[in-house]
């Protein structure tokens, strides 16, 4: 990408080495900005210790690192026990036993999609009674479809696109998020909204905004146009998306601000927004 000078709008919050992300812009919220919201929520709940149960892959690793860094900055809870699992694992009995024995105030499960339900059920089956947090990759209905009553009461950090109806009137994303949900559910059925489709919707908003600017500077199809496109994204300023508020800059290709995350709670198999995060 960097060699051909092509702008890439990434749909995964991947950490790239410094200098490698000159042409890449991430549309999902970075783990650090989400961890910020999780830690603030945990502090309000009086949580001092956290057990970590996450994927053995890059997603698990960046959450662990970002959570530790953010928590140190904010004076938040300590991660006291770190356990790992992989998506195709058939059981987390060993990890759950260790977590329950350590008995932290809360457990943070870092997994994606339907993979987030199995570890959740695993720690509940081993008798864990504290609070359980899930990350924004778990913010799909698959969590409830597979987790059933075991995921009741779980806290799931997400972008605002999942719950436009419940956002307060003053929330910047309320209108855009509602538009996304209306259009998406018209096409794919009621209740089909999810974290990931929101990113695709947001990509269109970003392109709508930057393509005319770049077009005014150079002819499409030329390297100059691609460079102008990048400059336009870097200079597009505060942009309201279905998934929060985005400000890219030359040094920041993550973009999302701390206005973005909302904390959801699973209540009766549905999302319920946590008022304390607003």
């Amino acid at each position: 990408m960097a060699e051909s000078g092509t702008v890439q709008l990434m749909f995964s919050p991947a950490v790239l080495q410094a200098g490698k992300d000159n042409w890449a812009f991430r549309l999902p919220q970075g783990n650090a900005v989400m961890a910020h919201a999780v830690i603030e929520h945990m502090k309000k709940q009086g949580i001092k210790t956290v057990g970590f149960l996450g994927y053995t892959d890059a997603y698990g690793e960046t959450w662990l690192n970002d959570f530790r860094a953010e928590s140190a900055k904010l004076g938040g809870p300590q991660i006291t026990v770190v356990e790992r699992f992989a998506r195709p694992d058939t059981s987390v009995t060993g990890q759950a036993l260790k977590l329950v024995a350590a008995n932290p105030d809360a457990i943070l499960i870092v997994a994606s999609g339907s993979g987030a339900a199995m570890p959740h059920k695993g720690v509940i089956e081993r008798g864990y009674e504290g609070k359980i947090y899930q990350t924004h990759a778990a913010a799909t209905r698959d969590l409830m479809r597979i987790g059933g009553k075991d995921v009741e009461g779980a806290f799931v950090v997400s972008g605002p696109a999942l719950v436009p109806e419940q956002l307060p009137d003053g929330h910047p994303s309320k209108k855009v998020a509602q538009d996304f949900v209306n259009k998406y559910e018209k096409a794919y059925g009621a209740g089909s909204r999810n974290q990931f489709a929101g990113h695709a919707y947001d990509a269109i908003i970003v392109l709508d905004k930057v393509v005319p600017i770049a077009k005014a500077k150079a002819k499409p199809g030329t390297p100059e146009f691609r460079a102008a496109l990048r400059d336009a994204i870097e200079g597009m300023g505060r942009t309201v998306l279905a998934h929060g508020v985005l400000t890219y800059s030359k040094d920041n290709h993550w973009g999302f601000t701390i206005e973005t995350p909302v904390m959801l709670k699973v209540v009766n198999g549905d999302w319920k927004i946590e008022p304390s995060t607003m």
Partner: peptide
């Protein structure tokens, strides 16, 4: 496998 996931979950496989 079971004991490995208790003892060192990151290295289970």
């Amino acid at each position: 496998e079971s004991f490995a996931s208790y003892g060192a979950s990151a290295f289970k496989e």
